[in-house]
């Protein structure tokens, strides 16, 4: 396996007793130093995958390497910080003592606890019993535990769950700074705006399989809407001019701009046509999905089309940069 990847999963399957397949032949690679958003609907297999990455759950088949080692080994765990599902701590211990306990297991000095408490903004309540913490404080303590070992790889499952807006913003800044400092982060979240702002790339899984991966821009573009957005003046003449084109199927004015149903490949030709007609064109670009729309479309497609899950389906290829594919990973 290539050592430029912090995480490598090859054809990983996890089948639980009772026949439930949580992860089904998943291939996924996370490059060193990147922040990868890990998206999928509930039950898609995200948490099981993350559990496998730290050795809490063993795969039924396939191969996993984390930082070049099998998951769950002391050497690997020493360099990985993880927050998986809801944080779980000793209710009778204070936040500080819970962190000290984790530090002792990790072979870190007790002073590491105070460092990370400050980093997540929990110093003021560090001495209070964990059972008195709010959901947001519990979440902060979970993130503090993940940071305790000064890890080079962070695996975070819904780290902003339960945080107030200010907490979400702080967490976003923290994640961004971790990425800038060269940490590798695997981030699962349902807050797509957060993922979009923080992540270098996104992987979408559904029914335990990878259905798409790429940068946020690539994912949005990968599922083209088949529409162009044109900002032109005067609008009425632009509409008339575009409707004359045989391959333009519809033109609709939305908030002073035009949504043109046509092959995005016609963009240059339509631009020429408008300019030749003496119409000012201020903006012309393919109309893209929001990340949320792309996510819903990707997961809905694969939810309703499980029988075709093996069929790799290339929906779009950007002209530059890495190829973005959607469909089952193998």
């Amino acid at each position: 396996m290539d050592d430029r990847f912090a995480i490598e999963l090859e054809a990983v399957t996890k089948r639980y007793q009772g026949g439930v397949t949580a992860v089904d032949g998943l291939d996924l690679r996370v490059r060193e130093g990147e922040v990868l958003g890990f998206l999928g609907p509930n039950g898609a297999g995200k948490t099981t995958t993350m559990r496998m990455l730290v050795g809490l759950v063993r795969p039924s088949s396939g191969h996993i390497r984390v930082l070049g080692q099998p998951p769950g080994t002391p050497g690997q765990l020493a360099r990985v910080g993880a927050l998986i599902e809801s944080p779980a701590f000793y209710p009778h211990l204070s936040g500080r003592d819970n962190l000290r306990l984790a530090a002792r297991y990790a072979g870190m000095p007790d002073s590491a606890a105070d460092r990370v408490l400050s980093e997540v903004g929990l110093s003021d309540r560090a001495g209070s019993p964990y059972r008195t913490y709010s959901l947001g404080m519990k979440q902060r303590l979970g993130v503090a535990t993940a940071l305790l070992k000064e890890p080079i790889l962070l695996i975070l499952d819904e780290p902003t769950n339960g945080l107030d807006p200010a907490g979400v913003s702080e967490m976003r800044e923290l994640l961004r700074s971790l990425g800038q400092r060269g940490h590798t982060v695997l981030l699962s979240s349902h807050v797509l705006a957060e993922v979009e702002q923080v992540c270098d790339r996104i992987a979408v899984i559904n029914r335990g399989r990878l259905v798409a991966e790429g940068t946020p821009d690539e994912l949005r573009g990968a599922l083209g809407t088949g529409m162009l957005l044109i900002d032109a003046e005067p609008v009425d003449r632009a509409v008339a001019c575009l409707r004359e084109h045989d391959l333009v199927r519809a033109v609709e004015a939305v908030d002073g701009r035009l949504h043109v149903t046509a092959d995005p490949a016609l963009a240059a030709e339509l631009n020429r046509r408008l300019v030749t007609a003496g119409i000012d064109v201020r903006e012309l670009r393919p109309l893209r999905h929001s990340l949320e729309e792309a996510f819903l479309e990707l997961t809905a497609t694969h939810r309703s089309d499980a029988a075709d899950a093996d069929r790799e389906q290339k929906i779009a290829e950007p002209t530059d940069g890495p190829e973005v594919t959607t469909g089952a990973s193998r």
Binding site: V54, G55, L56, G72, T73, P74, L77, A78, V80, A82, I84, E85, S86, P87, A88, F89, Y90, P91, N98, A102, Y105, A106, G107, T145, K149
Partner: peptide, 18 residues
Amino acid sequence: RWGTLNLIFTQRPRRGQV
């Protein structure tokens, strides 16, 4: 009961050592 094995087993030592 508390789910704290998740916390402990993702630190450093092997499960047997814990």
